[in-house]
Write a protein that binds this DNA or RNA. Structure first.
Lengths: 303, 303
DNA sequence: ATAATAGTGTCTTTCAGACAGTATAGT
DNA sequence: ACTATACTGTCTGAAAGACACTATTAT
């Protein structure tokens, strides 16, 4: 860096020694969500839906036997998105998944091995459900039903601002396996300075700090659901409007009024001539996604 | 990773060799925006405002003499946000800046020295303008007036989706120094798969791929302006509603109707007993930010 | 008085929310 | 006939957009 006038850029690059400084490792971690149908209670009732998240059982240290998000180290010759796609292909048989960068986590102590900076991604699979690759000798993958509830909210006003602390209880279940965690989100305003921190308070069965990546990603998924067309990545090619509404309701964890929902999504959807059949009630028209909608897919990356 | 049963986690960690794999470097790059007043034309007219961005002149290779975003390598013992704050303090005298993570850039060839993954941040300074540190021997910092215009938009419909290409012309000026770039954003939908790429087509005087970080960050700033209270970080402690409106207009690059603007922001603002004076016209009431507003600062990170 | 900005009132349109009603398959 | 879902019509109130109007200071 010093005495730059004495070197051309080409000389500088030729003599550059990348080994001079110690560096963090860089990984990608991917939140793969899907909405799946639970077995139906009765021949008439529509099946319930639930939100699922793909987790991988760790086959090595650290956190041996705990469950982690799919992901891994970024190689020197691949971009970040590329690495995320590669990791996805290593775990699943799906090729065409939605993928979007979420947030980058780089706290100092978050991996016991060494300093790790982790770029998290959001991925969505259609409710047909993608198939998982047969587990290698040392690892195992599974879809976990996600439930995340706000269990506490505390706002304390200080003289110069406030602190808003929200406590979330995350539960992941897959058959007899149950994982859980308590994650706190703390938003502070002090004068002009704001900060937002996520902290894992308890974590049972979930590796690393992945519980907070999950809770944070879930909030983002909910947010984006309301102002983008992201939901269609969770749908099969053809679907009924009720199915679409169920996907919204499942993720938002709240009921919506049918008439209003249909009005709002009418311009993002095109009807087909097909109908469902063999349900215990009136058949329902099938629709396809129609992207042109209103054109206002809002800006940028990351959101 | 192999034969995990033979080792405890403690043993594994003790023997872990972080030097085994080659790793990327990790940097932070910060977009520091502010809105500044241009010198007034007449004693009566209100001064015009313009959006400014902090840039640093490179004092070493690579890109010697070009202008880059403030930033630098993340140290092994500091978190990402911490690194961003440290870099900001190294360049400016401001302590209390708004800081928010934006996006992480990790294309393979983006730095000629070595593989660099760069976490970009958005920072806002109030229009009082923060003072810059005296330049070191080898570098120089300055506020550049930002202008970014959409110069082309092309949508091509394919059989299975579409491609939307938008071309932006970015101009940065500071006195006689003028930098410019052409940045393309390409959004593709093919069946279920979507992708979004940013590409720098031309870049005059701007180091690395920073032109695209700037254009992408600017889009995010515009987006967030409309649905968060982010704008108040650009305001001094007390301000008039017209000043606040000017900040919105400057960033959005479009005029707003006064009555509607005031109605919309009424609940985020508290009046004081003070007024401006010595303007060539009716004095204006001064306001303060009132956070409680509607409480709906929407979710998560990044976003 | 005048120029320039400060600030208010109100009309219209759009849209979200709520809810009541009709339609139609399968058993 | 009955059940469960499919689908539509319409009322209300809130908010966005547009615009016209009044108020107040320094020169």
């Amino acid at each position: 860096m010093r005495r730059p006038g004495e070197q051309t850029e080409a000389q500088f690059l030729a003599e550059y020694d990348p080994g001079k400084y110690e560096r963090p490792s860089v990984t990608v971690d991917i939140l793969v969500f899907t909405v799946a149908e639970e077995p139906a209670d009765s021949y008439r009732r529509l099946p319930e839906k639930s939100l699922k998240l793909l987790m991988i059982k760790r086959g090595g240290h650290p956190f041996l036997g705990k469950w982690a998000l799919p992901g891994g180290f970024v190689r020197m010759d691949e971009g970040l998105d590329e690495a995320a796609y590669r990791e996805l292909r290593e775990e699943t048989n799906a090729k065409e998944l939605y993928l979007e960068q979420l947030y980058t986590w780089g706290d100092v102590g978050r991996d016991p091995r060494t300093r790790v900076v982790s770029v998290s991604y959001l991925s969505l699979a259609d409710s047909g459900g993608i198939s998982l690759k047969a587990g290698d000798d040392s690892c195992d993958a599974g879809w976990f039903t996600v439930s995340c509830r706000l269990t506490g909210e505390r706002k304390s006003i200080t003289e110069d601002g406030y602190t808003l602390t929200r406590t979330h209880r995350l539960r992941l279940t897959n058959g007899q396996t149950a994982l859980s965690a308590v994650v706190e989100s703390e938003r502070t305003l002090e004068g002009r300075r704001t900060s937002h921190r996520w902290e894992v308070r308890e974590s049972e069965g979930i590796a690393f700090d992945h519980a907070k990546l999950i809770v944070c990603g879930l909030e983002r998924l909910r947010g984006k659901l309301e102002y983008t067309d992201i939901a269609f990545h969770l749908m099969p090619e053809r679907f009924t409007l009720t199915q679409l509404q169920q996907v919204y309701e499942t993720i938002l964890d709240r009921e919506l009024l049918k008439a209003n929902f249909r009005r709002k999504l009418a311009d993002r959807v095109r009807e087909t001539n097909e109908f469902t059949k063999d349900a215990g009630h009136r058949p329902s028209k099938l629709y396809r996604y129609h992207p042109g909608g209103d054109g206002t897919e809002p800006w940028g990356e990351g959101e």
